[in-house]
Nucleic acid binder design. Structure first.
Lengths: 217, 217
DNA sequence: TAGTGTGAACGTTTTCACAGCT
DNA sequence: AGCTGTGAAAACGTTCACACTA
């Protein structure tokens, strides 16, 4: 019903709406919202129309109403329990970010897991537990969402255990393609991949630009 | 010439090839590579064909040759200078990751910048410099690529200064849409966005699954 | 026989352009 | 007059199926 690519943009609109609301604006237009979200106005209108939105022709969109609607569609109205596995520098940063307002209001970090010296210490207001208790923790918290920030060589194993314990959505920061059964969603954030994509475009600029455009001076 | 979506997958193939090479395998097939990279065999073949690859019919691809070719296309053969701005927990983690082998062999962290107490300390083998010297540092290192891990409220300003100093590619971890002139590539890693996308699918599973599929049991 | 390279079908996403509502 | 919602077109991406080659 709602296209994948639209879903991927809804968070941008949600944030744009929050930004606008913070300025005290109560009504906005596709043009204004699109500019903040970094997309085209026609695309924004189609996206919002696909979720049954009712803007007012000739006027625009009601900021508060639209925000509530987008939040409802995304399912970030109730707090979703999140377990974070791997509390190195990265996991530490992620824990603070999600526990703070960073990830929006829809998420609650309920447990941190690791196997190393950080076990027993307090991070982002939670005591780090030992990953041996992974299954118990996931079931205790009824967590469906896990963030994976472990070393690469144990990631698949940890992922398998998470899924077996009831996790159905994984956000992985590990540079490996994870194997999961149907019904489990995996999203992967991959620093190396992003840098390599940038490198490709850098190369094209360095090679192509001087021949297709006049070199600067 | 090479489609965007293909470029975005090349890093996956590069890593798959490294994984295979580590096992001592010298020849591989589209099926094997695709399985490791998590894509379909036909897609992999089309991707590789688009960059002028020459696999051998009936045999497959030469691992070492293909790796060199993909690396060359991505432009990760020479070391690219990377500046990281914002050395909090996240920036710290990113610095260690890129400085180690994490991001592959094509990148070299040449400077770390911040404004806080970390200035003067050593992180990932580099002394953190003050962001006041941003322009001087970018020019000194001839850096074209920057990683942005600052607080959100200064991100646009820092980005503007980076671009003015000569940076043409930015990898941002800040939850804001950055405004940049043409010719500057921005890639954005957005934790909140990823979690919200997962939340959407979780909601669909919770609502749709019981009615469309038989409930387990 | 095994496995690539690719024309052609298919599906998805984006963009245009304008009718229709306030 | 201004701005949304949307049919239709265009662009893009994926998948199929098979001819072709070692």
């Amino acid at each position: 019903m709602i296209p994948r690519s639209t879903v991927a943009r809804l968070p941008l609109y949600l944030r744009a709406l929050e930004e606008i609301a913070a300025d005290g604006v109560t009504t906005t237009s596709s043009g204004e919202l699109a500019a903040i979200a970094g997309v085209g106005p026609a695309q924004l209108r189609r996206d919002l129309a696909s979720l049954g939105s009712h803007g007012v022709r000739g006027v625009g969109y009601d900021v508060a109403h639209l925000h509530a609607q987008v939040a409802a569609v995304l399912g970030v109205t109730a707090d979703l329990a999140v377990v974070i596995v791997g509390i190195g520098n990265l996991g530490h940063a992620l824990a603070n970010y999600v526990a703070g307002a960073g990830a929006g209001e829809g998420f609650r970090v309920v447990a941190l897991l690791d196997t190393g010296a950080v076990v027993g210490t307090t991070v982002a207001g939670l005591v780090v537990e030992h990953a041996d208790a992974l299954e118990a923790v996931v079931e205790r918290e009824a967590a469906r969402i896990a963030v994976l920030a472990t070393p690469a060589d144990v990631a698949q194993e940890v992922c398998d255990r998470l899924v077996a314990a009831g996790v159905t959505a994984v956000l992985s920061f590990v540079p490996r393609v994870l194997q999961t059964p149907d019904g489990v969603d995996v999203r992967s954030v991959d620093l190396a991949r992003e840098l390599q994509i940038l490198a490709f475009h850098e190369q094209r600029k360095a090679r192509g630009a001087p021949t297709t455009t006049a070199p600067p001076e």
